[in-house]
Write a protein that binds this DNA or RNA. Structure first.
Lengths: 232, 232
DNA sequence: GAATCCAAGATTGTTCAACAATTTTGGCCA
DNA sequence: TGGCCAAAATTGTTGAACAATCTTGGATTC
């Protein structure tokens, strides 16, 4: 019996639906990194069979949103130091590449401009979550310059993993406010067609952001429940 | 009852095993692009239950090796013109990026050198498959310069899709022989530390290769059984 | 009291049989 | 030939069952 509530769930969609529900809950921080997703309770809570839940698990594991340990269960991914390094390895490649070789149409530049303004407003009103959102939106839009759905998907996964990193931190200081101006500069350079400068500035920003995040992660050690992912 | 034949198949591995078997058969061209993977016959052939086969399908669909159409079944991916364009969008970003910003150790350069020599030998002996292999190995090794497992995984998927493109072509002309020298030049430039030149040459090569492949694909039209993927 | 070992219980991985929903097939009719 | 419809085949999902593995709690030993 599919969700009779609002309608859209005929036949052949419940697995994808369950995967999407879990994805959303994890992204929202309801299911915290490292926590176990036991089959029986979840089946009952979601109203699906164990088999379809397991299939949804397979989907999420493929997206690295969840970690499967044979015979032990599946856990919300809990990215640690090594995963953060990998995140920035990816970003340091594809973001500058997008800036150097992506397509810069007036419409796209307009979109970037709007996002940067949103970030400035968020900083003015002191809203850290809004600043984080705007920052992610901006860097996602940068990768969109490539016009590639695969790269966009990879970037989305990377940004989702970043959110997990933030969710797993006991204290979440303001990582974003002093990067707003850098983003303003980036967009200004793009508007001026200074791709080379934009790419270099972007790489410098990514180096700094990685270092700052790693420093905070190192200082926080392992207190809190979030057991780290085993090293790759 | 898992494979009792050679041993390694205790508990909790058959889904991954099945996925790997299918992956291999598709890569080898035994299962041709566009062909349908019906559940019942495959279950019988592989000796697994319908449920685990379906789970393997979910894994492969996540890797874009297979296309799932709700209520119709799963089919071996059959990349067409649009997919080829996407492949080269990705490659035109991450390969030059790897060349510009990857880590160039002497060991890695040595590895590239060896691959290029393999390509030259393949050309001398006139073996098109060996040339194709060497070409893929070289470009995979270029992406490995990034040090990023995620980017490597993306590149592996892209190269696998390229193989599908070749498998779906009725006639497979020699796409590689006249690119061997270009690859030699690329490695030479890397050895000399001329990253900028290498990146530009690489982008030019990718543009040419894409154009040539698209031209051949366009001339071949739709004869043959391989129905194209529906447009994205 | 702390550490070790072991059997009972719980959990995961897989199979099987069933059923609803949907698609495909094959024949009938105009 | 072309369209229409019921029968058959196929997919998506469920529920119960079982083997393998992990976890737990207690008894035993030092």
């Amino acid at each position: 019996m599919n969700t009779s509530a609002d309608g859209t769930a005929e036949h052949a969609h419940t697995t994808a639906w369950i995967a999407s529900v879990l994805r959303t809950r994890i992204a929202a921080g309801e299911l915290t990194p490292g926590s176990k997703l036991s089959e029986e309770p979840l089946c009952a809570a979601l109203g699906v069979s164990r088999n379809t839940l397991r299939q949804a698990f397979t989907t999420l594991a493929g997206e690295s949103i969840v970690t499967r340990i044979p015979n032990r269960g599946v856990f919300v991914a809990s990215p640690g130091v090594e995963e953060v390094r990998e995140i920035y390895r990816v970003r340091r490649m594809i973001e500058p590449a997008a800036v150097l070789w992506g397509e810069l149409t007036p419409q796209v530049l307009e979109g970037l401009e709007i996002i940067v303004q949103r970030a400035q407003q968020a900083r003015d009103s002191g809203s850290v979550p809004d600043m984080a959102d705007a920052n992610q939106a901006l860097h996602g839009a940068v990768v969109a310059l490539t016009g590639s759905a695969s790269l966009q998907e990879l970037m989305d996964r990377v940004l989702a993993e970043m959110r997990l990193v933030f969710h797993s931190m006991a204290s979440a200081p303001d990582f974003h406010s002093h990067y707003v101006d850098r983003n303003v500069t980036l967009v200004k350079q793009l508007r001026a067609g200074a791709r080379q400068d934009a790419a270099e500035g972007l790489r410098a920003y990514l180096d700094e952001a990685e270092a700052e995040l790693l420093a905070h992660l190192g200082s926080e050690q392992d207190r809190g429940s979030g057991m780290r992912q085993r090293a790759g």
